[in-house]
Design a protein around this nucleic acid. Structure first.
Length: 433
RNA sequence: CGGGGAGUGGCGCAGCCUGGUAGCGCAUCUGUUUUGGGAACAGAGGGUCGCAGGUUCGAAUCCUGUCUCCCCGACCA
């Protein structure tokens, strides 16, 4: 993409309303614009990041055996009346009425809808287990939206729902998701601590939150430092049942649940950190299958209410969370997996014909090689280009000016470390493949 | 939902107390000079001061109402 053509409204100054780094940077780097309290427009650059994250989430879901579907954002109130949550959910749920006077709602989650789908289409234990997910916009009418997309009212969430014949099978489904989550966050370059959680409004016995460590996180968590020995950032591949067992038994709780006097972890081994809740998994047994009559025939012919679990990842929140965990005074530092572009190409001699030709040629070559490159071809000052590229945080920069061109070389800069090295123009493409 | 604050060109703000027909910085446009870390000079465009009433000869400014947004706290992917 040529920057001169791109819709990328960046800000030099800090917007007054943005309190924390990620919110500030998302506005400054032209990722989003606010259009109402807790409502954001995703601009081209931000949308690319959102889709990158969405895809990683999707790949790990698929890999775990879950199957993607897509449910609507608008739901009938009837199903929620059946489960009893229409009254229970309160004002957080946006209620609307259609032209026929029918009560509807903008879905904050989909347990009812999917339970209905399941009971209408699955009759036998032979069809279990099943795990279905979708990635869809949700709306929760937060009393006080804040922190940009980290706490918006409309947000993109991956949520899935598992159906099993008994508790043992349900635990297997739960652990599969536990592993999928560890892998997902690891691929995004994040340290996510699995924290034992309350099951809250959704109900149930077993639940973990995945907290991403970030200085300005909303939750305070207490955990055994033993968890650090797991190198959570590189848990990309094989995760044995043994590791799952250990991770789930290590002490990690939210502030409210932490009791200093009865803590099983010695003081010197206890870590206190701020986190952003990026995912939450629940096993809630037969809570919905009982009231909504989601039953299948067992092997003995009896009707059995299915064991269910639900699992969420805040996809749009992750955009903010990643920035929160990875930025400096110059801007965002994208981990490669979530970066909107892999390389930023800066033409320092935009008014120099020779240099521009060389940059254009390099740009075409990189594109042809399938490298995601953002090309700053603007006729602007060098400082401005450096500042923009640092702000939007692409992982690598190629800086080419008339000076380097004489030696057929450019500067290769790593955004994260600031490290710069000379690179021969002919070696650039191979560097990124 | 309790407490606080703010709405004035695209962004950040001043002006309001003490009414007199709107200003600064950044950004934008044109021209010239610049050109390796957000350049300089000259000129230009852009605002019914959130909205609705009221007071007044006259309201961004005073009064009443209303809407929106933000911040702190209690709750949530």
């Amino acid at each position: 993409m040529r920057l001169s053509q791109y819709f990328l409204p960046t800000l030099k100054e800090n917007p007054a309303e943005a309190k924390i780094a990620s919110h500030r940077l998302m506005l400054r780097a032209g990722l989003v614009r606010q259009t109402g309290s807790g409502l954001y427009i995703w601009l081209p650059l931000g949308l690319r990041v959102l889709k990158k994250i969405e895809n990683i989430v999707r790949e790990e879901q698929d890999r775990s055996g879950a199957q993607e579907i897509l449910m609507p954002t608008i739901q009938n109130a009837d199903l929620w009346k059946e489960s009893g949550r229409y009254e229970a959910y309160g004002k957080e749920m946006l209620r609307i009425t259609d032209r026929h006077g029918k009560e509807m709602l903008y879905g904050p989650t989909n347990e009812e809808m999917i339970t209905d789908l399941f009971r209408n289409n699955v009759q036998s234990y032979k069809d279990l287990p099943k795990n279905l997910y979708h990635i869809q916009w949700k709306f929760r009418d937060e009393v006080r939206p804040r922190y940009g997309v980290m706490r918006g009212r409309e947000f993109l969430m991956k949520d899935n729902y598992s159906f099993d014949i008994d508790k043992e099978a349900a635990k297997i489904s739960y652990d599969k998701m536990f592993v999928a989550y560890l892998k997902t966050f690891a691929r995004l370059g994040l340290v996510a601590i699995p924290v034992r959680a309350d099951t809250g409004a959704i109900g149930g016995e077993l639940s973990h939150e995945f907290q991403i460590l970030a200085a300005e996180g909303e939750s305070t968590i207490y955990y055994d430092k033993a968890i650090e020995s797991f190198d959570l950032k590189s848990l990309a591949e094989d995760i044995s049942p043994d590791i799952i067992q250990k991770l789930q038994s290590i002490y990690a709780v939210e502030e409210e649940k932490h009791d200093a006097d009865n803590c099983p972890v010695a003081k010197e081994n206890l870590r206190i950190a701020k986190g952003v809740e990026a995912g939450h998994i629940f096993n809630f047994g037969t809570k919905y299958s009982e009231v909504m009559n989601a039953k299948v025939s067992g092997s003995d012919g009896s009707m059995i209410a299915v064991e269910m679990g639900s699992y969420g990842i805040g996809v749009s929140r992750l955009v903010g969370a990643i920035i929160e965990a990875s930025n400096d005074e110059n801007g965002i530092i994208w981990p490669e997996a979530a970066a909107p572009y892999k390389v930023g190409l800066i033409n320092l001699g935009a008014k120099n014909e020779e240099c521009t030709e060389a940059c254009d040629a390099l740009y075409k070559k990189m594109q042809a090689a399938g490298i995601e490159v953002l090309y700053d071809d603007r006729k602007a000052g060098a400082g401005q280009k450096f500042a923009t590229m640092d702000l939007i945080g692409v992982p690598y920069q190629i800086i080419l000016g008339p000076r380097g061109l004489k030696n057929n070389s450019a500067e290769f800069k790593i955004r994260k470390t600031g490290e710069k090295t000379e690179i021969n123009l002919d070696e650039i493409v191979s560097k990124f493949i």
